[in-house]
């Protein structure tokens, strides 16, 4: 059995107060393991993003326990949680969130910079990460001059350049066409399989299913299936899927 990177037990999260109170998560048990590519799927409002925020140490659960790389997160202050994110977690956002005034290489290097990794070595690592996502020739290009797919690849390079144990991605293919979506999923799958990371992708895009080792379904704040995945399990039409 491979190493557990994130372990969530009995996670509950209530958002809002009084009449506006919503039980977004109602007792989630989930483990993410090294080398495993997991999809978290579910309809809108099912609690996918809330769970991602909790797993990414950006939202404290109302109850339950969360450990990241063996470290419990309960009682840790904001700076401590930021440190856990910095040291162990890489994020990929739906709308890329690149810095428009920095080049692709500088955007990637930023993930090292906040970890106090600077100088030529950091620059070299950033360019190597861009090379791995096929963007070595665009290292000095500003995000505004890149396509959506290229921007998302820069964001992925930024997520894994510091070698985090886990990558959490939120709808990374939502704004991309078929070719770009396939390319992004392949990079993320490689990040899990070849680089021994836990990768969790939140999506409601069924085309990404063929890449998954495991598909976790969430509905009304509860996991309804934590099975081992594959497109056949969801009866997905072959033509609709991104092919690995």
């Amino acid at each position: 059995m491979s190493e557990i990177i994130i372990e969530a037990t009995g996670i509950k999260k209530t958002l809002g107060q009084g009449a506006g109170e919503v039980k977004a998560l109602r007792g989630i048990d989930l483990t993410l393991r090294r080398g495993e590519f997991t999809l978290l799927m579910g309809p809108s409002g099912s609690g996918k993003t809330t769970l991602l925020l909790v797993l990414g140490c950006m939202l404290a659960p109302s109850s339950g326990t969360l450990t990241v790389c063996g470290m419990p997160t309960s009682g840790v202050d904001k700076e401590g949680l930021a440190r856990i994110r910095r040291d162990h977690i890489g994020f990929v956002f739906q709308s890329y969130h690149l810095f428009p005034t920095l080049t692709a290489a500088q955007n990637v290097q930023l993930a090292l910079d906040i970890r106090h990794e600077r100088g030529r070595k950091a620059g070299k690592r950033a360019r190597e990460a861009l090379n791995l996502v096929g963007l070595a020739q665009k290292a000095d290009t500003l995000p505004g001059e890149l396509s959506g797919g290229e921007q998302q690849r820069v964001a992925i390079a930024r997520a894994f350049v510091a070698n985090p144990s886990v990558i959490l991605a939120d709808e990374p293919t939502a704004a991309l066409d078929g070719n770009n979506g396939r390319s992004i999923m392949r990079i993320l799958a490689d990040a899990a399989h070849q680089r021994e990371r836990a990768v969790l992708v939140v999506t409601h895009d069924p085309r990404v299913i063929p890449f998954a080792d495991r598909i976790v379904e969430i509905e009304d704040g509860l996991l309804v299936d934590t099975g081992s995945g594959g497109p056949e399990r969801l009866h997905l039409p072959k033509a609709a899927a991104f092919r690995p």
Binding site: G56, M58, I84, R85, F93, H97, L110, A111, I114, R115
Partner: peptide, 16 residues
């Protein structure tokens, strides 16, 4: 702000 929030999400310290 969204850039600073991104930095924070990536784990940067407030000091940075």
């Amino acid at each position: 702000l969204s850039e600073f929030a991104t930095l924070r999400a990536m784990g940067s310290s407030n000091g940075y």
